[in-house]
Write a protein that binds this DNA or RNA. Structure first.
Lengths: 250, 250
DNA sequence: GTATGCATCTTGGTCTGACCACGGTATGAA
DNA sequence: TTCATACCGTGGTCAGACCAAGATGCATAC
């Protein structure tokens, strides 16, 4: 355990044992003095130093494991982890099963990220980025009749845009939502059976690609928003027809 | 506790106590037979029925609280919650603290979120949202010579834009960056001492506000980007002068 | 000197039983 | 009927014990 993990007895004001321990650990870990792979001191010692019982400490540690912040290894100790988006699966699975409105909301964040990404991509995409986008376009064409693979191909194209932004932060945020967005793409691919969307899927993705190559951030942004708007329109038509709800635009 | 919560003793195969209890509870709650507001049976009873000790059950319940799936109320019981994306705030905070070291990069995400937010705000801001923005504008004027309070006021204005979007997701993402953004605002407030930025700070924030009130998403988006661009220009001037680096635009 | 086997240590995983805090409910007395 | 008190119920927490199993250290044999 790193010396940087300075233990102080928790003060007596406010909150219950768990809350104070959790907040303390969270802050200490956020302070950044511990790196992924570092091990915290043994539970018994940590609990004693923090002045709480071991089960309470364990509740706090367990909470941190669920957030992907640490990992408790049997008979080894508690190890600091690199944050991992897979922890979000449980949340999104639960959340979306109860609140379909959240999908629309998450898509706002998706739009935010992709539109800013495409602006950056128009300015700074590398040859490798463009090749990646081209490959994704080809994949969209090849999978036009396959719901599963097609949804995957759509996602890959959009992911490639975010990647082409060269922004680590935008990519982290986008990856955090990838499970939800994948689902969205799949649902939208089911619309292919209701409407003939092949032209839209193929041509419009190309149009977006051309806008990136064109190098003008505003035009690229606008082309992507138009792309989303068309997808929204298909969804609107389906809703008016009373058909099965498809969640989101491509 | 709803009758629908059928308890079975956990089987003996695979996994440790915690893992089995957590998986069982997660699945039962995902099955949807419990609604927000429903109460689980008392911990002692639930632990006995599941065949585990109470501390282990509590670890599992605590994990579920962190995922926002349930809420443990002191002396009442464990209540099923309505999913709320704000529980992911800690996750995003950690994810960004480990992966995004550069202020410039985080600001790309900030721009993405604010620009999408202002588009939504132009369409859907409530009276309360507008009042909040107005209050923040007044605060900017009143704190124009105070670095600390001024940085706070700037942040509050921008935060109010995100809030006016009405998007939980965008707000959570923004909040997870708030510590970094606060720093950015403070740093930028130091520029007031180098350049006379008062007009910019006061008038340009008003211009952004007016764009929101104007109700046109694209115009609002553009006005905010222009606002950032002006702030960038001040920063560029400082860099050319070789003065102290201020990190980012307002 | 080196290798192997056995005992001990370490650390998380879990259990048991006890106690605390405090709001809500029930009961008894006026 | 109303008010006061006692009890109950439930989560919050503690202390101490035990288990499992890998790692380490020590002793013995080759």
């Amino acid at each position: 355990m790193s010396d940087a993990f300075e233990i102080t007895r928790l003060d007596d004001q406010g909150g219950k044992g768990f809350e104070k321990v959790f907040a303390f650990l969270r802050e200490r870990l956020l302070a950044g003095s511990l790196k992924p792979g570092d091990r915290l001191i043994p539970e018994r010692e940590l609990a004693a130093q923090l002045g709480v019982s071991r089960p309470i400490l364990r509740e706090a540690l367990r909470a941190l494991t669920v957030l992907g912040i640490v990992e408790i290894r049997d008979r080894v100790g508690t190890i600091v982890r690199r944050p991992d988006i897979s922890v979000l699966n449980d949340f999104f699975t639960f959340a979306l099963s109860h609140r379909s409105d959240l999908m629309d909301d998450i898509v706002q964040a998706r739009v935010a990220i992709e539109c800013q990404s495409i602006r950056l991509a128009a300015e700074r995409a590398s040859v490798a980025d463009l090749e990646r986008l081209q490959a994704a376009l080809r994949q969209i064409e090849e999978t036009i009749d396959d719901v599963e693979a097609g949804g995957r191909a759509d996602f890959d194209f959009h992911h490639a845009i975010v990647r082409a932004s060269g922004s680590e932060t935008l990519l982290v945020l986008y990856d955090s939502m990838s499970a939800v967005l994948m689902r969205s793409h799949l649902d939208r691919r089911h619309l292919v059976r209701v409407f003939d969307m092949r032209t839209y899927l193929i041509e419009d993705h190309k149009r977006v690609f051309d806008a990136i190559v064109g190098g003008n951030p505003e035009i690229a942004d606008r082309s992507l928003r138009e792309h989303f708007a068309i997808g929204d329109e298909f969804r609107r038509k389906l809703a008016i027809q009373g058909g099965r709800r498809a969640d989101q635009p491509d």
